[in-house]
């Protein structure tokens, strides 16, 4: 499954913000929706959100930068999240991840040069009895090993 995102445009952003602005505590639902639409939360969105919610741009920036989920740059076409938490570590996740990152020439959070794949860390998917765990474009994968990760990375086209 390849995620296709809309390019940034202020009209689409306004439409999303209008959908949430009257909720109690609209900020997080709104940011999730913006990221869902554009694939990241563009900097251009900050003043638009600030104006709509009657906040300063600094406050909006502060919220976006606080949460690990919100991306400031577009990601690759596929996003592979690898769990780095203790339960997965106990089953060898760190060595598997290192193998994959080395193979792709990436560090955590980076995207392959062809824009195909982003590899991100995640701290626990709650799949701790079928470790090590991964999430490829939102699909969970349990009992992974270095070979499985390699296959996932190669097949994500």
């Amino acid at each position: 499954m390849v995620t296709t995102n809309l390019a940034w445009n202020v009209e689409a952003a306004h439409a999303i913000i209008d959908r949430y602005r009257d909720q109690e505590g609209p900020m997080l639902p709104l940011l999730h929706a913006l990221q869902h639409e554009f694939g990241y939360v563009p900097r251009e969105a900050e003043p638009v959100i600030a104006a709509a919610l009657n906040l300063t741009r600094a406050e909006v920036h502060g919220v976006i930068s606080f949460y690990h989920d919100f991306r400031r740059e577009p990601a690759g076409r596929h996003i592979l999240k690898l769990c780095r938490a203790e339960a997965c570590q106990s089953m060898g996740s760190e060595a598997n991840a290192r193998h994959l990152l080395d193979m792709l020439g990436l560090d955590w959070g980076e995207t392959t040069r062809d824009g195909r794949l982003t590899v991100e860390p995640v701290f626990c998917l709650g799949l701790c009895a079928t470790a090590p765990s991964a999430l490829l474009d939102g699909e969970p994968i349990g009992r992974t090993d270095a070979a499985i990760l390699e296959t996932l990375a190669r097949e994500a086209a």
């Binding site: 997080l28 999730h32 949460y67 690990h68 919100f70 995640v122």
Partner: peptide, 21 residues
Amino acid sequence: RVGAGAYVCGEETSLLESLEG
């Protein structure tokens, strides 16, 4: 309501701040 990848939001007061946006 959906969190955004912050472990500390499991702490109750931090969670309330997050819910408030």
